[in-house]
């Protein structure tokens, strides 16, 4: 049986990304070691060690172009689940996070969209 337990997102600054994903969003660092001129960094939710997100450098020009185009079009590149979106929205707004969409009902879920400050829009969703 196959499992999805690791995925990645491109970031334009790995140190800044690690700070945002841990200090602001509330994930915890799982791995951080040198990988060539960059680092292999993963974060995870505090209670889910089996699901990790790698913060990869967007040094590849193709990745950079893709990331910038998606951002300009307002398209999130990942979606994280929230168990209480209104509370997370209030907490993150207070922390100075930029949102491009406030919590909005969208059928079976409520969604909001924020900028991770390292090149990506991230959607938050809560199942209703």
């Amino acid at each position: 049986m196959l499992h999805i337990n690791l995925t990645s997102i491109m970031v334009d600054d790995q140190s800044k990304a690690l700070a945002f994903y841990t200090d602001v969003l509330g994930f915890v660092k799982r791995m951080d070691f040198p990988a060539g001129e960059y680092r292999w960094i993963t974060v995870a939710a505090p209670d889910r060690d089996d699901l990790q997100l790698a913060l990869e450098p967007n040094a590849n020009p193709a990745a950079k172009a893709f990331q910038q185009a998606m951002f300009a079009q307002g398209i999130p590149l990942a979606s994280f689940e929230s168990t209480d979106l209104d509370a997370d929205y209030a907490r993150l707004m207070k922390a100075g996070v930029a949102f491009t969409k406030a919590p909005t009902n969208a059928g079976a879920v409520k969604i909001a969209v924020l900028s991770d400050t390292v090149g990506n829009l991230i959607q938050l969703h809560q199942r209703l």
């Binding site: 690791l6 995925t7 990645s8 990988a35 060539g36 001129e37 960059y38 292999w40 790698a54 990869e56 450098p57 967007n58 040094a59 590849n60 020009p61 193709a62 990745a63």
Partner: peptide
């Protein structure tokens, strides 16, 4: 500029050729 020994770019590049973009 030194050639990067590893520029991940995507997870697959970690374990196989090509090793970088």
């Amino acid at each position: 500029a030194p050639a990067a020994p590893l520029v991940p770019g995507c997870l697959g590049m970690l374990a196989s050729e090509p090793r970088n973009f």
